[in-house]
């Protein structure tokens, strides 16, 4: 098929050239030249079938040609994850910069649209329930549905979760499933160890699919815990798609407002390392329990 196409192309090009030459728009010499180019056997077009991976140069590599002070650029690049020191090709970004940008954007989209895998939940031994949002699309279009459990989920939580514990841990996919899979394996054991060695009574951690921060209020109302903590995937950016936040609240009820929540954000390998965050969250939870308050009320007691 490819060969036939190639033959056909040659015929078309040849007749067009001859027409142009007849009208005096193309000299014989130019005609031969263009024909020779057209006759090259292998086309120079990129092979879209190729599975070859594109390898990016290391992120910390400075891409500016002939910098005035290379050390200064390197020092600045070290101080920020932003895309600086990437050079330019004329007025446009270099190919690699553009490809990296597109790739990072794709990673961010995957983080939102993919689910936390069943295999992961099994490996972490997490019980899983779903919010009132039945699909990713519905979850994204109807924020209110992500803020409460489905009827079925509420029933499961009521039946299976331990009641009246001091701390209930929720793991919520939120806007980044990647953040859950990247951080929970190191964060959760550190947090559990910290709470247990402090003698704090913790219920079994629970996973909520298609959930938002407020779903913690619904769960807390069922299990009647003192503190509920949600480990939730943050909205991904182009810097990282793996950032996780921890929202904590002391005994939420219908009068709860956003200011009642304590939050620790930016948990990922380039921010607060997840294991260290687990130990830090233990301290914060201890403060919340001691103060019987969270959010702004907690800060005012300090």
């Amino acid at each position: 098929m490819a060969v036939a196409n190639n033959e056909l192309e040659k015929v078309i090009i040849q007749s067009v050239m001859e027409e142009l030459a007849k009208k005096g728009l193309l000299s014989q010499k130019r005609k031969d030249h263009v024909m020779a180019a057209a006759m090259i056997e292998t086309p120079t077009l990129p092979d879209t079938q190729s599975e070859e991976m594109v390898t990016f140069p290391p992120l910390n590599e400075m891409q500016i040609s002939n910098p005035f002070n290379a050390d200064a650029v390197k020092a600045m690049m070290k101080s920020t994850p932003a895309r600086i020191g990437i050079g330019r090709a004329g007025a446009r970004p270099k190919t690699m910069s553009l490809l990296r940008f597109l790739a990072d954007h794709a990673v961010a989209q995957d983080a939102v649209f993919l689910d936390v895998s069943e295999e992961f939940l099994k490996r972490m031994d997490l019980m899983s329930v779903q919010s009132a949002a039945t699909s990713k699309d519905e979850f994204l279009q109807r924020p209110d549905l992500g803020r409460r459990l489905s009827v079925e989920a509420a029933k499961i939580v009521a039946e299976k979760c331990e009641k009246n514990v001091q701390v209930q841990i929720l793991i919520v996919d939120g806007l980044s499933s990647s953040a859950i899979e990247a951080n929970i394996p190191d964060l959760l054991p550190a947090l559990m160890q910290g709470l247990k060695s402090s003698g704090i009574k913790v219920g079994a951690p629970l996973f909520v699919k298609n959930g938002r921060v407020w779903v913690q209020d619904h769960v807390a109302s069922i299990v009647n815990c003192e503190v509920i903590i949600s480990l939730i995937g943050e909205r991904p950016g182009l810097g990282t798609a793996e950032s996780l936040s921890a929202y904590m609240i002391y005994r939420p009820d219908e009068k709860t407002v956003e200011a009642d929540r304590t939050v620790i954000s930016n948990i990922h390998k380039g921010g607060i390392p997840p294991a260290e965050a687990g130990a830090h969250l233990t301290d914060v939870i201890k403060q919340v329990l001691a103060a019987k308050a969270s959010g702004v009320k907690l800060n005012q007691q300090k």
């Binding site: 550190a190 160890q193 060695s197 390392p273 260290e276 687990g278 130990a279 830090h280 233990t282």
Partner: peptide, 14 residues
């Protein structure tokens, strides 16, 4: 040097 003093201390005590 790494940012893990708290969790390391916690593990040692455990």
């Amino acid at each position: 040097e790494a940012d893990c003093g708290k969790v390391l201390g916690q593990c040692i005590n455990a």
